[in-house]
């Protein structure tokens, strides 16, 4: 059984002492803005939208969260971790080359661009790329598995789990300043924490993360 927190919304704490001005400022930006396309080409952007739909979860409530635009902003501003593995391409180049290779791999194997494949085939192909089971000629020296895991997946997931909808779904406490927590022991909860749904709905969760 997958655990769930159906009536928890981390943003319900927005006006409480679990949020401070600085955090509200950061999240207002993340929730309210859509950075324009500056790093990816139009084709890359379209491909990224499909890749994000496959790689990131889609929250049960509220639908997909925006990822491509924030990734574009990070790469455009060079706002990433700065280091790279010896012999690896500089980050910007790796992204352009990796996305191109994913598309070429689709064309090589299925004679169609990646975004034109059905979802099932996209998943099969991505699993192969993850394992590095690809046509090396298409990847031009880029290691498919490394690009998939350390670059593409890591960044996509890192942006997804910076979104409050992802926190609400997994029951993560989220922002907690100035008020932190009081009850820290096993099976202990503060009233402003997420309540997990009990199987069969026998026990109605107390509170909803609002305090």
């Amino acid at each position: 059984m997958t655990r769930s927190y159906p009536d928890y919304d981390v943003l319900a704490k927005w006006d409480t002492v679990s949020f401070d001005d600085k955090t509200r400022h950061v999240l207002r930006k993340r929730l309210g803005e859509t950075p324009p396309r500056r790093f990816f080409s139009e084709e890359e952007w379209a491909l990224m939208e499909v890749l994000c739909a496959r790689l990131a979860p889609t929250p049960q409530r509220g639908g997909p969260v925006p990822i491509t635009c924030w990734l574009d902003a990070r790469l455009h501003e060079g706002d990433t971790e700065g280091y790279r593995i010896e012999g690896a391409l500089p980050e910007a180049e790796a992204w352009h080359r990796g996305l191109k290779a994913i598309d070429e791999q689709a064309r090589t194997d299925y004679v169609r661009p990646f975004i034109a494949l059905d979802v099932e085939t996209q998943v099969i192909l991505l699993k192969r790329i993850q394992k590095g089971e690809v046509d090396a000629r298409v990847w031009h020296g880029l290691k498919a598995g490394d690009f998939f895991t350390s670059t593409l997946l890591r960044e996509v997931v890192g942006i997804y789990y910076a979104h409050p909808a992802a926190w609400s779904e997994m029951g993560f406490g989220g922002p907690a300043s100035p008020r932190g927590y009081v009850r820290m022991g096993l099976n202990e909860h503060d009233p402003w924490e997420a309540r997990e749904a009990k199987p069969g709905g026998a026990r109605k969760p107390r509170g909803s993360g609002v305090a």
């Binding site: 790689l55 979860p57 997946l153 779904e169 993560f172």
Partner: peptide
Amino acid sequence: GLWGEDLQRGMADYN
């Protein structure tokens, strides 16, 4: 190596 729904299920166990 989790992504998509597998990742969603894995993360549901976070707490």
